[in-house]
């Protein structure tokens, strides 16, 4: 219920903004990126509801006014997660003052093992402004599904590891999904595309 209310309010807000592009937002529904994938025509990740490491409930609209960059992973991930978060920290620096509007959000695919304490320490090593979100197993599955994120537990002896989509999803400051950044792109390449999103809104 609150959800639809929030969405309605968000839509109303968008309506006002589009009247005169007051905030300098363009209504372009197609963007051209040099490196990343234009996701402007896709509706993903609109309704997730997860908790941050302080226990506060967060939705996409919690980050309104910022440019959220969402990445899924788990802290026991040896490679792609730390390198992607390190890249995000580099991007934020490369963006200069515009980087203040980039909100990096790490969503845990491993809520059974990623405690809020570990998650908090983990993301903040990369940048103190980074946010980590997690939920129950069901919420995690629902969130991954609405982003089109694949993940799968892989048994490994007494433990398990996780295969997962390593794309970073970027929303503009109105909460419209814009850009998918592959793990293979450099910080410089990502930064160029992120500045393109920023020009739109």
């Amino acid at each position: 219920m609150t959800d639809s209310l929030t969405r309605r309010r968000l839509l109303a807000g968008i309506g006002v903004l589009s009247l005169g592009t007051l905030a300098g937002c363009s209504d372009s529904n197609k963007l051209s990126f040099k490196y990343g994938k234009d996701l402007s025509n896709q509706i993903l990740g609109r309704t997730f509801r997860l908790k941050d490491t302080q226990g506060n409930e967060k939705t996409l609209s919690s980050f309104r006014g910022m440019m959220p960059m969402v990445f899924f992973g788990f802290t026991q991930c040896p490679a792609v997660c730390p390198t992607t978060l390190a890249r995000a920290a580099q991007i934020k620096k490369l963006m200069g003052r515009d980087g203040d509007r980039l909100q990096v959000i790490f969503i845990s695919l491993d809520p059974e093992r990623d405690t809020p304490q570990v998650l908090d320490a983990y993301v903040k090593i990369f940048d103190p402004t980074f946010v980590a979100l997690s939920g129950t197993l069901e919420q995690t599955a629902a969130t991954a599904k609405e982003f089109g994120v694949f993940y799968e537990k892989i048994p490994a002896g007494p433990t398990y590891t996780i295969s997962h989509t390593s794309t970073s999803f970027v929303f503009d400051s109105r909460g419209t999904l814009r850009l998918g950044l592959s793990q293979s792109l450099t910080a410089q390449e990502c930064t160029e595309d992120l500045l393109t999103v920023m020009e739109v809104c």
Binding site: P78, A79, V80, F150, I154, A156, G157, T165, S166, S182
Partner: peptide, 19 residues
């Protein structure tokens, strides 16, 4: 306590892990 060898591979931007 446990040491394993894993292999990761990237396809379609999905990072796959395999012991």
């Amino acid at each position: 306590g446990t040491v394993q060898i894993h292999q990761s591979s990237m396809k379609d931007d999905v990072m796959r892990m395999l012991p």
